[in-house]
């Protein structure tokens, strides 16, 4: 059965690429969510630091997002 699955995947990369993109989105979502939550908490604790926190949160989100986007790009690669 597993051999049939592998053959299926090998002949038709489309669905597996979508799964890959989905997994990447999950990882990115968790990362961005954690940063967002922590940033919100920090802003609530120290509202005077809001501007600084906003800036660094955006940059950190960009870093996390890049990892997820690598996944998306790999699925582009596979999907053609």
């Amino acid at each position: 059965m597993s051999l049939a699955l592998v053959q299926e995947v090998a002949t038709n990369f489309g669905p597996i690429a979508a799964v890959g993109a989905g997994l990447a989105a999950i990882g990115g979502g968790i990362g961005v969510g954690k940063i967002g939550g922590a940033a919100m908490e920090a802003m609530a604790r120290q509202p005077e630091m809001q501007g600084k926190l906003q800036g660094s949160a955006i940059v950190l989100i960009a870093f996390i997002e890049a990892v997820a986007l690598f996944g998306v790009v790999v699925s582009f690669l596979v999907a053609g």
């Binding site: 960009a62 997002e65 890049a66 986007l69 690598f70 998306v72 790009v73």
Partner: peptide, 13 residues
């Protein structure tokens, strides 16, 4: 490379 991929993938996505 990360700079490249980030902008490209974000906008394309």
């Amino acid at each position: 490379i990360a700079l490249t991929i980030r902008l490209f993938a974000n906008i394309t996505a």
